[in-house]
Simulated scan of single mutants.
Amino acid sequence: MSESESVSGNGQSGPSTPDELLAHLDGLGLGYDLHRHPPLFTVEDSKALRGELTGGHCKNLFLRDRKGKMWLVVTLEDRPIDLKQLGAALGGARLSFGSPDRLMKYLGVIPGAVSPFALFNDAERQVTVVLDKEMLTFDPLNYHPLSNDMTIAVSPGSLLAFLRNLGYEPDILDLAGLN
């Protein structure tokens, strides 16, 4: 398998589509509200174009350490994160951002479309998930469903149920002090 290939949540080679993800959520009985919009690549884009979309708005950091271990850190959009402090909180890892090729390999998405729902494409469960404890107090939470031209609003319980259904038990950390 090349650096840009992956096996998706549907068990087939290549990343899953947003429709496949939404069908999976429907199959689990997890409710969501779908919002379509122009492609968003940054938190700033999202802030400028979100309109009246309520709830917790989040950013997603796809990170790796020098040994090749991968993390997806999901936090509130305005939360400053110091990678050195985060690495210390994660057991002393020296963290850096994963490349676009690595992002496609592990999560099957492009930069700007990263979200916890991209874990649907991590068939080998190689990415460790870290969720911001405070983020989980917001209802709904807003994330891209494998594409940055739509957003789904889900409850914290639905997010956790989705992750656990895939076999993840996310680390829930108080990220407020990591800045």
Rank of each mutant, 00 (worst) to 15 (best):
N142M: 05
L95K: 04
L21H: 07
L28Y: 03
N60Y: 08
S115A: 09
D33A: 14
R66H: 14
N121Q: 04
F117Q: 06
T54I: 11
P38Q: 13
I110K: 14
D132A: 08
K67G: 14
I110N: 13
R50H: 12
S96N: 09
G56D: 04
I81L: 14
D45P: 04
G92A: 00
N60K: 02
A93D: 08
T42Y: 07
G51E: 03
L22N: 02
N60A: 03
P111Q: 10
D19F: 13
P116E: 08
V114A: 14
P111T: 02
K59P: 06
K69M: 11
A93C: 08
E77Y: 11
H37A: 00
L76T: 15
G87C: 06
L95Y: 06
P38R: 14
A48T: 12
P39C: 07
L141N: 02
D82R: 06
D33M: 09
A123E: 08
S115Q: 07
G112D: 08
L28R: 09
G31P: 00
P80Y: 07
D45R: 02
L83M: 10
G14A: 04
A88G: 05
V109N: 08
L28I: 03
Q126W: 00
P100T: 01
A113H: 01
G112H: 05
F62S: 07
H37F: 01
A113N: 01
R79K: 15
R102P: 00
S16G: 15
P38K: 12
S16L: 03
A123F: 11
K69E: 15
M135D: 01
L40A: 14
E124I: 03
A123N: 06
D26P: 02
L141R: 01
L131W: 07
P39T: 05
M135C: 09
L40S: 13
G27S: 05
T54M: 11
G87A: 01
L25K: 00
D122P: 07
R66P: 01
D65N: 13
A89K: 13
G14P: 04
H57T: 05
H35F: 13
L141T: 02
Q85M: 13
L25E: 02
T75P: 05
L21T: 03
S13H: 12
P80W: 10
T128N: 13
L83E: 09
R50A: 11
G68T: 06
D78W: 07
